[in-house]
Each structure stands twice: as C-alpha cells, then as structure tokens.
Write a protein that binds this DNA or RNA. Sequence first.
DNA 1: GGCTCATGTTGACATCGCCCACATCGCCCG
DNA 2: CGGGCGATGTGGGCGATGTCAACATGAGCC
Lengths: 200, 200
Amino acid sequence: MGTRRGYHHGNLRRALLDAALAMFVARGSFDFTLRELAREAGVTHNAPYRHFAGKSELLAALREEGFGALAEACRAALVAAGPDDVRARVRALGEAYVRFAVGHPHHFRLMLYDPLGGEGPAPAREPGGAFALLQGSLEEARAAGVVRADLPTREIALAAWALVHGLASLMVERHVPADEARLRRHVKVLDALFFEGASA
Amino acid sequence: MGTRRGYHHGNLRRALLDAALAMFVARGSFDFTLRELAREAGVTHNAPYRHFAGKSELLAALREEGFGALAEACRAALVAAGPDDVRARVRALGEAYVRFAVGHPHHFRLMLYDPLGGEGPAPAREPGGAFALLQGSLEEARAAGVVRADLPTREIALAAWALVHGLASLMVERHVPADEARLRRHVKVLDALFFEGASA
DNA sequence: GGCTCATGTTGACATCGCCCACATCGCCCG
DNA sequence: CGGGCGATGTGGGCGATGTCAACATGAGCC
C-alpha cells in the first residue's frame, strides 16, 4: 500500500481512499479518523488536507466512485445479457443492482448515506445512472410489447427501481438475509410482476 | 426543555434524546457531540454518561423509539382503513410506511443506519414489526382471494416490503422527489401489481 | 541551473470522548 | 423523623482529533 519512495508519496489520494474503504470494511461504520488514514498511508496527519478539504469531501469522493462502479456493474450485466431478450435484460439489471449492493455493502451504504445536504433543495442525484439504464431497458421491453400494458412506463420504472433498491437496502441493512436463493427468487418475482406471460 | 430545578435535572435522559434529534434535524448528520447535548440540556459534559454508555447507545435508544413510532403509525393506518376492505388495508400500510419515512427522514435514516454490528451474525431485526403487519395483511388479502394467485404469499410480502421500503428510502435519500402525488401513484402501482381486478 | 508550485511536515489550539474521584440529593428503612 | 445509601450530576484530567498557519522539500518546466 503506502510504499512511498521519498518525501512525496506518489499517489496519496488513492491511498487515502483505499485506506478509508478498508477502514470501514474492518469496522462497520464510517467513523474513521483522518489522522488514522494518514498514519495508514505513512504520512503525517496534515497531508490529507492537500487532497481533501475534510472528511466529508473524502467520503463524497468515495461515494462518487461507488456510483461509478454500480453503473459499470449494471452496464456489464446488460452486455452479458445480450441484446435480444429485452426481458432478460431487465432481470439482469435488477440482479446486478442487488448483487452489487450485497457484494459491496459498505460502498452501497455510503452511497445511500449522503448527509442529507442540510435540507437544501433536492439534489435529485441518481445512483450512477443505474435508474436511467433501468428506464431505458424497460422502454425497450415496452416497445417489444412484453411489459404489462395497464401502467405507464415511467411508473413501472420507478416501481422496478424501488423494488430492486428496496431489496438491496433491506439486505445490506440485514433486515433480510442476503442469500443467493432469495435474490434469485426476488428477480423472478420482479419478472412476474412487470411482464406478461410466462418467463423464459 | 432543560428546565432543571436544582442539582438534579429531572429527566435528563429524555432531554438528551430530544436534543440529539433536534441536533440532526438542524444539521443533516449524526455527528453531534455528547458534550454538545449536555450543554444543550444545561448539564456538565459528564452527566450524559449516567444515562448512556456512549454515543452509540444513545443512538440505539433513538432507533428503538423510531421503530416503535413506525409500528404505531402502521397500526394506526390499519385501524383507519377499517377491517373490511383487505385490499385497502394493504394500501394503507404501504402508504403509512412511506409517509412515516418522508415525515421523519432523520429517524428513518437512523433506523436504517445501524452500524452493521461488525459483520456478526445477521440480527434479522425488522423495522418495528412493520413487515409482520404487512405480511399479516397480505395473508388476509390472499384469504379473501384478491391477491394474484401465481406467486406465494411469502414472496409477495417480501416484494411488497421492498417496493415500499425502496420508495421510502429513495425519497428520504432524495434520489426521488418526495411529493405527495408520486406517493399516491406509487401506492396505486403497488395495488395494481399485487391485486387482481380493478381497484376500488 | 534556477524558479515555482504542488505536496508533505511541524507545531499549535480548541474540542472531544472517556476515566477518575467527589458533591448533592431523593428516598427508603429503621 | 432522621440517618444513610444509591442514583444522579460536578469538576478535573488525559490522550486523541480536526483544523489552521508557517515552513520544508522536490518535481517539472523554462
């Protein structure tokens, strides 16, 4: 990790982010200390301030990374699902979303846990474009005529997002055991709820 | 608030909890300080330790209260919905859940945000019995024959919970604007997804 | 080769969490 | 009714933290 060669570290920013992530994988919480990260990186207690204005800014950077990773996971799931079966694409998306959350619970929590910005105007930031992907896939599916026709696409998209995000959240917070079987069943339910006819 | 009459405060515990709640309504975060709460309550920096072993224990107490309040809100919604229309009962539950979250975002966040307990065995704590209520209502509905028949009740219950919890979470985290219209539409979607035939 | 600016260091201060011993007071029991 | 005891709050202290300001170092560019 913190293999510095001389006076300068080389890539302290990265090292700090990694240390922070490792820190709250070890504990369950985000209450690490900046000085601790500095020590971990082999640097004095003030070096981090050259890269982040404070703890909150460091967390924001991590959050950003998390959003990126989630979006990437979703895109990867889409290409893995192939372009043909629009219905399978939606399922793949939902599954990837939950799987990311369960696989990176700390990142997911952090992303979820923006400090509320002080009640200001709603930022309306969305988790890494995942919702846009989902909405797009649902539009494909609708165009293909497999989506149930009694609800507008926009509402279905929000419901699908909530369904998936809800399970992810419940599993990450361990209100529901995060086992594979449950995940698969949930995706099937999602399929049954939003699509018409038997699943593939 | 902190109207103490003499050496003793009278109800410091309550005062501290209220102060803590007020504190992260003011800011957006839980990073208040115990000393600050003590000042707010008009006692010295060590008095809180007579009531809570530390900050985490105070937060746990608040969480507990939140769970209680949520369960109460759900029960109230059930009685308000009346005993007859089992389908309306489910809708009322979902609506109450989201409404609670939107109405008490800090409490909801706090409840959501259990420090992960250090990766130990899943506590499987459920948000104030809300899930049990939902499951019960869905069983009523199934017995009445209004629930879609192609999915087991257990799965439907989990999906309904996820759907509702997901929207609550998305709204609290402001990924989705928390307006009334959206809430109502979402409840309608929930109804359409899980029940058969047109809604009342 | 020297300048400059980003990066890291050193020192300092107010504050925090938590530990200690001590003070005060409500309340029970004789 | 009065003494004592346990619960509650006080005061002081220690190590650690976040953040500020001044200084040191060295990489890159001319």
